[in-house]
Each structure stands twice: as structure tokens, then as C-alpha cells.
Design a protein around this nucleic acid. Sequence first.
DNA 1: AAGTAACCGAGACGGTACGTCGCGTCTTACG
DNA 2: CGTAAGACGCGACGTACCGTCTCGGTTACTT
Lengths: 218, 218, 218, 218
Amino acid sequence: MGESQLPGDAAGPVRHHGNRHGRSEDARRAVIRAADDLLVERGFAGVTIEGIAARAGVAKQTIYRWWGSKVDVLFDTFLEDATEQLAPPDNGTVRSDLTAYLRQLAAFLTEDDAGAVLRALVGQAQHDPGLARTLRESHLDQLRNRELAMLDRAVGRGELPAGLDLDEALDRLVGPVYHRVLVTGGPVGPEVTDRFVDAFLAACAAAGEPAPVPPDQG
Amino acid sequence: MGESQLPGDAAGPVRHHGNRHGRSEDARRAVIRAADDLLVERGFAGVTIEGIAARAGVAKQTIYRWWGSKVDVLFDTFLEDATEQLAPPDNGTVRSDLTAYLRQLAAFLTEDDAGAVLRALVGQAQHDPGLARTLRESHLDQLRNRELAMLDRAVGRGELPAGLDLDEALDRLVGPVYHRVLVTGGPVGPEVTDRFVDAFLAACAAAGEPAPVPPDQG
Amino acid sequence: MGESQLPGDAAGPVRHHGNRHGRSEDARRAVIRAADDLLVERGFAGVTIEGIAARAGVAKQTIYRWWGSKVDVLFDTFLEDATEQLAPPDNGTVRSDLTAYLRQLAAFLTEDDAGAVLRALVGQAQHDPGLARTLRESHLDQLRNRELAMLDRAVGRGELPAGLDLDEALDRLVGPVYHRVLVTGGPVGPEVTDRFVDAFLAACAAAGEPAPVPPDQG
Amino acid sequence: MGESQLPGDAAGPVRHHGNRHGRSEDARRAVIRAADDLLVERGFAGVTIEGIAARAGVAKQTIYRWWGSKVDVLFDTFLEDATEQLAPPDNGTVRSDLTAYLRQLAAFLTEDDAGAVLRALVGQAQHDPGLARTLRESHLDQLRNRELAMLDRAVGRGELPAGLDLDEALDRLVGPVYHRVLVTGGPVGPEVTDRFVDAFLAACAAAGEPAPVPPDQG
DNA sequence: AAGTAACCGAGACGGTACGTCGCGTCTTACG
DNA sequence: CGTAAGACGCGACGTACCGTCTCGGTTACTT
């Protein structure tokens, strides 16, 4: 999983074809493109190594040389178009940041091709602990850190209470969105995500004051 | 999907054996049991029709006669042991109900065998819209209705504001739990779920009053 | 093989249907008819117990109750229409008897439905010694005896030499016909079979005299 | 049927191993050998693609890649060991040639493993016109041509009448042998085949002279 | 007239083998 | 040395029939 060895990123236009100078960039892109297309056209089960190879005009061995499985290829497919697509913003106010980000997240998950890939990967991760780990380490953790930074900026600005557990706060924010997308299939339009932000901010505001509803006595 | 036709339904010791009167109850249970065991022991990929058949001492054709796929079998596996396992309680107070339920939900998803099946099904549903639909219609909707009733009781008692959108409220409650389980893999122990309930109640309380933090002007 | 128990042959029109008095004649005929049709329409491989049962509107068990296999059914099929179809004639002269019989045999094997069944059975008998034995004992031996009697009559009339080995003579007569039908697929029209008879008779005639060509000295 | 594409043809140690240059010769031989063994040990019904694959240590797909059915494999099995096994001799005299050849043929059909394969193929050909055609075109016709040449040499030497229909003559010669082997199961030892030759030669001799028995008047 | 027993249809069952698909590994020839 | 090509052993797929079984219904001989 995730054993994809990227080619010489910095080295400029390395672009060979059946030679001794490193992997073929053409082949790499053809594979990723083919995998993406197949996922969108035929769904996860329709993505096979043989299918990718045939569609990309590439030998199976070439795929196995650089990736470990079809999930690995999809993973690169995902990284290719999605890495910077989900950028927690920095607009200056919590409300603005959060509403913007949740709208962006919802749209990404439901409308973007890369979002479809992510859903497929998260789905597959339920069957495959190794993939789950790779997925988190290679992507979700970075994203999460950027999301946490967004919250941290709000704390710095005094918009969120200092003692807030940012991890849990984040789950309370994005959790409902993921839940609708992955589990209920319910709508996640801007009105919905905006209200999620409202509720989140209301809870945070209340947490900074004496709780108006006394805790459970039992 | 979900094309399993149950036999003698409600009552009566209907216990046939492969004749014109319907399917063999023995075979049905052996299949479901085998699928469950295989999922727990070897994971989703380790569940195969051939494997189930061999383990259950049943012919493949018998499985194909009554179920459409391994997912279908797992679905019945899930219904078998989980239908009543997740019962939103009615303890008399919101806080008590919600903390109890979220603890129960988290434990189910992370510790119970049926929870493992549910995670697998939700994962597979990401690749299979038909399964997603069946899963919701056959199970998740009922559960959700019971969950909504739990919230509704709290509204009736005046513990939650009357104008609350219960659907969104529910997503804000259980969403963070599912998110941790399905996406981040973070912990969902009682302390965590209790704090989720705290935050939820705080937000609801605030919603019933003039908001102490003014909404974003932009 | 050949375990078909025929019903009370002599007892008149025994014709019941789901009772305790013996097998259903309707079912028996429907089965035989279905098997015959299937053989002609779809060939030997297209004859299956399930297919016969479905086509005859009969339960599989009914077939297994009275026959042992599809070959057994075909066997009855064959006996039904072919037992008396191949009757070595008694016209008074060898030449007449033999030409008539060989023409009849060739036509039966190549044109008659029952001939198709016989070819199928002989074919199957190559794979199945048990069937081969049954086939000979139940049918071919009787036929052969009638054929031998035909030759014996000719010997009695002095038309064939007294010392003739009738078994070998018969093989020299019908063997070429079977060979063409079963092996080469060559034509076996009346002109051909008539010439076979000519040659046979010529050899027999020569055997009654001093051989004009001296035997090999080596 | 007979769609087996042979590799390196005539000569040269072409010995590849499952690459772009053609099929694996090892696999081909293992398959043929396994099929042969299974036929001899368990009969035609005991020959299955799965059985062959297992015994040969070969994947089913490899068999299906190069052959179309078990009959196809048996066909190659047969060609492998039998092509030159039946060689009509050229000893200089008809009697010598024919007695030798008929003995050889009878022994081949009744004792040789390849003979068993041929019997199975001829049997199967009764159910399968395609196989019948292939069998004739791929093997029997060549053999027949060699047999006809043997007779033709005798005609050239003046040992057989010039006007003889060689095709029919051949059927009269080998037909009785095939008949015994395929139909009656009667013995075909040297004494028997020698007498078949005697009769054949007697008929031919008589055909060259005024017939001592006048033809039928009716 | 009721009971009973043999045969019927239907069809589910545990199996074997089918022919296909995709896996991941391999060997080669080319550039 | 990386590539396209593709054969290989392997495992699982979903299907077709096999031969066995249990069932409820029908019918005609008991009693």
C-alpha cells in the first residue's frame, strides 16, 4: 500500500519510454487516468489491474512495478487531483472560515471525481486496515492538521474558547457531513452545512459561559 | 440485494428440510453463521461464497438460491444479531438518553461482531449504490426513526427547543461518532461520547436563547 | 443400466395416475417421447434428466424410480420404436435376402430416428462397458440371432457352403455398413450395399471350390 | 474442435515457458499425458478438464487457452502417440500386406492405449458431428489414403483386379474388424483377421473371372 | 364411507464440473 | 533497464445437472 515511488520530482522533464533512465512518466499518467475513468464509469468493482492495463495501453507488470494494488493506483489517482483541493481557508473569522470550509468539503465529497475516489477508498478502508492506516498517514492526517490549524487560529483570535479540545471539536464539525455522505445519503447543501456551523459555534459559545442547562444529576 | 425470502415468519416451529414447503432453516442458519465467522476471522475479502458454503456444509447453489451475493448474506448476518441491539433508550431525561445511547452506539460499532458487519456493509455501500439503498431501507431508516423518536420525546418534555430540526440534530449527535469510527479511527470511549452529548446539549440550549455571540455580519 | 421394469405387459390397458397399482403409463410414454425429441433436437449432450422431466411434465423422481440414467431412458426409447424394425427377411434366396436386409439396415442406421438413437447408444457404449453389455444382451444379440438364422437358411438351401463360419460371415456382411456409418461417414445407398452383397457371395462361392489364387507361401 | 495450435512445428528445440513467444511445451505435454492416463484409468467419463488440470499440475485456463474441450485434448493425445502407429505395410504381396495390416489394426484397436482413445473419439463422434468431421479430416483420411495406396500397389502388381472399387474394398476389409470392436465386442485375433483377408482375396479373385454362381434372377 | 398405501408433481438439498475472470508472477524482445 | 506483450498457476465466480430427499395431493384398493 502506498509504495508508489514518485519519480524525480524536481529533476525536470524526465520523460523516457522503455529505457534505462527511470520510469516512464507517460505510463504513470496513463495508468492513473485509466483508473480514474474506470472508477467513474464502472464503479470500484469495475476497476481491475487488467482493465487499467488494457485501457492505459500498459503492461500489467508496469503497474505492479510501481504500485501494489488497484487501491494503490486509486490512491495516486486521488492524490493527483485532490491534494490541494481541500484547503481550509483563512478568512479572518471563524464563522467565515467554517462555513466556507464545510461547504467546500461537502461539495468535494459529493460532486468531485476525486471525492468519489475518496469515498471509495474510505469504503475499502473498512475492509482493509492497512489501507486505512495508509490513507490516514498519507493524506487525512495532513488535511486534519490543516483543519486543526484553522480552528487554532480562531482560538488565537479569541473566537473559540481556549480550553477547547480541537480534535473533538473538529469531529463535531465535519462528522455530521461525513455521516450524511457515507451513511445516510442525506443532503449536504450549503444551508445544511451552514446550520452545522451555527450549532457548532453556539455550543462553543455556551462552553465559555456557565452552562444554562444544569448537567444530569444521575 | 436483500432478496432473501424469510420462511415461516413470525411464529410456529416451521422446520422443513428442502422440500416444496420452502427452504431449509438449518441451511439458512449455517450459512449466516459461517459468513459471520469468516468476516470476523478473515475480514471482508476472506468472505467468499465458496468459503461460506464449505464452512457451512452447504452447496453453493443453496446460497445462490436464497441470496444474491456475499453482501446479501452478510446483510442477513447483520439483521440476525443486530436488529434490536441498538435500542435508543427512554430514561426520562435527554442527557441520560443521549449519553447512554451514544455509549451504546460507539460500543456496538467498535466492539460487537455485528458492528464489524455493519462497518463492512457501510464500506461496501460506498462502492455499491444498490446496497446503500437496501441498507438504508432495510435497517438504517428504522433505527433512525427510533433515534428521532428519542429526540422527539425530549422536545415533548421541553428539554430541547421546539423548532429544532431533528434530522440535523441527529447527524450532529451521531455523526462525530461514525466519523471517528469510519474515517479517523479515533477513540470513542464513554468520556468522548459524553462530551459530544455535552456539546450537543449546549448548542441546543443556546439555540433556545438570544445568541450570545452575534452571527457573522459578512 | 436396463433396469427398466416394464409394467404388466399382458394385463391389458393398465393406465393409472398417482395410485397404488403400478406405474403411470402416461408418465412412461411422456418420458420416452421427451427423450426421443431431445435427442433428435439437441443431440446426446442435450438429453438430461432434468430436461426430460421438464419437457415431459414429470418429476425427476419418477424418472429415477423407473430408469437408472438417461441412457436407460434412451434405451427404452430405442426399444419402443425399433424392436421389429430390423427384420432379416426370408425371401427364398440368399441374394434377395441379403440385398434386402443390407438396404434395410443402412436405411435404418442413417435415416430412422431410432437409428439415431442406436448410433448414440453405440457411441456411448464405447465409453461405458456396462451399457455395451446391456445393449448387446437386450437387443443386438436377438437381432444377430435372427441375422444368423437368415444365413443358416441359405446354408440349408445349399446356397452357402456348409462349413462357413456364420459369425464371421455376418461380420463381413454388415461390418462394412456399420463402418461407413460409424467411422467414415461414407454413403451406404442401395448400390453400395448391393455390391457388398455381391462381393460377399463371390467370396462364399469361391470358398466352395479350389482356390484359383494359391495362398501366400511366406 | 482441433483448434490446438501447435508451436515450433517441425524441428528446433523450441522450449519456451509461458511468454509472448508461445505456449509452454511442458504444459502441453503434461496435459496430454494426464488426459491419456485418466482415460485409461477411469474411462471417458472420468476425464474432466478439472481432473486433467489437477493431474497435470496446470491451470484450467491453460487448457482452455489451447484446447476447446476435453475431446480436443484427447484428440491431441491420440495424434501424439498414434499418428505413425498404424502403417499399412509394403511387403510385396497382397496377402502379406493385408494379413499384417489387419492384425496390426486389430491389435491397435483392442490393446493399445491410443486405440482406446480412438474408440472413445469414435464413440463421441456419434454424438458430435463436428468432432466426427475433425476426426476424419485430421486423421482418418490420411490413414485411409495410406490404406488405399496399399491396395493400389496390389492392383499395380496385378494381384487385385484392375476395376476394383478401392474404397468399397477397403470397407469390406477393415469394416468387419471395426464392427467387432465397436459393436459386437467379438474377438479379433490373428486367426480371425487372417480369415477376413482370405475371404476378401477370394472375392477379388472371383471378381476377375466369370462368376461361378449366377446372379439373382429376380 | 373412511383409511391407507403406492405413485405422482414439485422442488430444495449436497455435490461435481463447467467455462470465465482477474489475480500476481514469470519470461521474453525491443528500444 | 524499463517497457509491452502475454502465458502461467491459482482461486473464486455464477451456472447446469447430478442423484437423493421430503413433502402434499390423488387415487383405488381395502376394511
